[in-house]
Design a protein around this nucleic acid. Structure first.
Length: 304
DNA sequence: CTCCGTCAAGGTTAG
DNA sequence: CTAACCTTGACGGAG
C-alpha cells in the first residue's frame, strides 16, 4: 500500500507548476519554467521518500501550455535527461506516479474540437510518463465527462472515443467515479465495454451510489485493474467538510473516519491518494495511522 | 513591496 | 438565458 497527495507540497518553498500568461509566451520562458518545475519536482519526490509517501500526482502544468499549439518548443528532447533522471528515482524508490488532467479534458463532448484538445492534453501528459520510462501502472485519471441530457448517449460517446485513442494514452487511461454525474455503476458499464480500469473515489461514492456498500464498491473497482498491466487499485480518499455543501472536501484528515474506511478493505491492496486540503500534512498522518495498524512498513529508507 | 483582478480550456445548476 | 460555482494558485499590472 502506498500513500500520497496531489500536486502541491506546502512544506517546500518551490512549486512544480510555475507558469505564465499565454499573452507573454516565449520559448525561453517555457525552457526556464520547465527547468525550474522539474527541479522542484525532484525535491518534492525526495521529501516524499523521507516521509514514507510513495504515491504522488504530478500537476498538469510541468510544461506551460504543454498541449497548446502555441508551444512548439522541443521540450521533450531538451529535457529528456531530466525526465529520465526523475523516472529513475521514482523506480529506484518504488514510487507510483499519476496525473489528473483537469476539467477541460472531456472525451465525451459532442464538440469534436473539445475532444481533439482533450486528446492532445492526454498525449502531452502521457508523454511525460513515457519520458520518465515508467510502465503502464503509472496512470492518467479523468472523469467520464458531461451528461448532455442523455446518459446512455454520453457513455456510448465516451466508449467510441476511447476506442480511437492512441495506444500510448489508452494503456494509461483510467476513469474515476464522480460525485454528481457518473457513478461507480456507470463506470463499470464503460469498463465492461472497453476494459478501462476504474479509479475509485470513496467520497464521490458516498455522494453518489446505488446502494453498494463501501466494501463491495472497493471490490468491484479493484476487479477492473489487471494486476500486471495496471498495478493495484488506485483510489482517491477524502471525507465531507462538516457544515459545508455536500461534496466539499475536508480541510484535514479525520483520522476516525479514515480508520473506519480502512476496515472495508478486508486485506485488499490499494494505493491511496489523499485529496485533502492540507496536502502532505494529512498524508503524513495517514502514514502514521497505517503504521499503527502495520499496513505499511515502519521504517523509511531515507532516514537511515 | 503589496494588493487584487485575472487567467487556454467545460459543464452543471441555480435563478 | 445568464451568472455563479467547481477549486486554486499564481501571474503580473497597478499603486
Amino acid at each position: 500500500m502506498k500513500i500520497g497527495y496531489p500536486c502541491v507540497n506546502e512544506s517546500l518553498d518551490c512549486t512544480s507548476g510555475a507558469t505564465f500568461r499565454l499573452a507573454s509566451y516565449s520559448d525561453e520562458r517555457v525552457e526556464l519554467a520547465v527547468a525550474a518545475n522539474l527541479q522542484c519536482l525532484q525535491r518534492i519526490l525526495e521529501y516524499n521518500v523521507t516521509n514514507g509517501l510513495r504515491f504522488f500526482r504530478i500537476g498538469s502544468s510541468i510544461v506551460p501550455f504543454g498541449s497548446h499549439p502555441i508551444n512548439t518548443f522541443p521540450w521533450q528532447t531538451r529535457f529528456a535527461a531530466e525526465f529520465q533522471a526523475i523516472g529513475d528515482y521514482v523506480k529506484a524508490q518504488q514510487m507510483r506516479i499519476s496525473f489528473h488532467p483537469d476539467q477541460f479534458v472531456v472525451l465525451n463532448s459532442p464538440s469534436t474540437d473539445i475532444v481533439q484538445r482533450s486528446i492532445a492534453e492526454l498525449v502531452y501528459q502521457g508523454s511525460m510518463l513515457d519520458l520518465m520510462g515508467l510502465d503502464s501502472t503509472a496512470k492518467l485519471q479523468i472523469h467520464v465527462g458531461g451528461l448532455y441530457g442523455d446518459r446512455d448517449l454520453a457513455i456510448s460517446r465516451f466508449i467510441a472515443t476511447y476506442q480511437e485513442l492512441p495506444e500510448a494514452v489508452r494503456r494509461r487511461l483510467v476513469i474515476e467515479n464522480d460525485d454528481r454525474l457518473f457513478s461507480l455503476r456507470d463506470c463499470l458499464r464503460v469498463h465492461e465495454a472497453v476494459g478501462i480500469p476504474i479509479l475509485f473515489d470513496n467520497f464521490h461514492h458516498e455522494c453518489l451510489n446505488h446502494g453498494e456498500p463501501m466494501a463491495e464498491a472497493l471490490r468491484l473497482a479493484a476487479g477492473t485493474w489487471h494486476p500486471e498491466r495496471d498495478g493495484v487499485l488506485m483510489m482517491d480518499y477524502s471525507s465531507q467538510q462538516l457544515g459545508e455543501r455536500k461534496g466539499k472536501h475536508t480541510s484535514t484528515l479525520e483520522e476516525d473516519l479514515f480508520r473506519e474506511f480502512l476496515t472495508h478493505l478486508h486485506g485488499l491492496d490499494v494505493d491511496i491518494m489523499l485529496e485533502i486540503k492540507d496536502k502532505e500534512a494529512s498524508a503524513c498522518r495517514a502514514v502514521s495511522v497505517l503504521r499503527e495498524l502495520q499496513l505499511v512498513a515502519a521504517e523509511t529508507t531515507a532516514l537511515s
